[in-house]
């Protein structure tokens, strides 16, 4: 059906609502509208309604997006575009130094070998260090194995004054007056507190 036929009045002498809307949507020419004041008024009403809807929608959106908000939006857009043009520089790590060309010239192609040797030396040093540390650790553990339980010898609580005294005795024994002191050793024994060692237990940790 041709457009003209479709929007021509079919029932009665006026356009139906659908025909009016179709006329509006298609923006087509309609002879009936030129002659019928009533249909033109109805079309005007339709256009006015849609215009009101448009105005209301525009007003609603413009109140949300006021001048200040649009300005901020524009600023953000331009910042993002600028960031796109100048993306953040990715710094190489480890940084390849270009400040000392003499060093580079000196090392030349051997640079990789030097770096490899340094890395290998570091790894070997670390390995040896750990190994030595482990050996020392085991040795110290073996040495300390017979650990005397002090609690088992209650009578061995020694006074510091006694220590000093024994130190003096030892000094005398290794000194020049050893011979002189020897006959008096029994007297020394009498002077010291007799210690009775009952039992000593060894506890392995």
């Amino acid at each position: 059906m041709r457009f003209e036929d479709r929007i021509a009045p079919t029932t009665g002498s006026h356009l139906s609502d659908d025909q009016l809307m179709e006329t509006y949507v298609l923006a087509g020419e309609n002879r009936h509208l030129a002659s019928c004041r009533q249909c033109r008024a109805r079309l005007d009403e339709l256009v006015r309604t849609l215009q009101h809807m448009h105005d209301a929608a525009a007003c609603e959106a413009d109140n949300i997006f006021d001048a200040e908000r649009l300005h901020d939006q524009r600023e953000r857009i331009m910042r993002r575009i600028e960031r796109h043009d100048h993306p953040a520089e990715v710094v190489a790590f480890p940084h390849r130094s270009t400040n000392h060309p003499a060093v580079h010239r000196l090392l030349g192609p051997a640079r990789r070998w030097v770096a490899g040797a340094a890395a290998a030396g570091l790894a070997a040093g670390l390995f040896l260090g750990f190994a030595m540390d482990r050996r020392i650790h085991y040795a110290s553990v073996d040495h300390n194995l017979p650990n005397v339980a002090v609690a088992a010898i209650p009578s061995l609580q020694v006074d510091t004054r006694d220590d000093l005294f024994f130190l003096e005795v030892e000094a005398a024994l290794v000194g020049s007056r050893v011979r002189e002191m020897r006959p008096d050793l029994g007297a020394i024994d009498l002077m010291t507190t007799p210690i009775e060692i009952r039992e000593v237990s060894y506890v392995r940790e």
């Binding site: 923006a27 087509g28 309609n30 509208l33 030129a34 079309l43 256009v47 849609l50």
Partner: peptide
């Protein structure tokens, strides 16, 4: 504006203001 009829145009223009809607079919 495409070939919109003068009669309709006259009718529509009367209902539209300065900052009016473009006709749906218009380019």
């Amino acid at each position: 504006m495409t070939a919109s009829g003068s009669a309709l145009q006259a009718s529509v223009d009367g209902a539209r203001g300065e900052d009016s809607l473009a006709l749906p079919g218009s380019a």
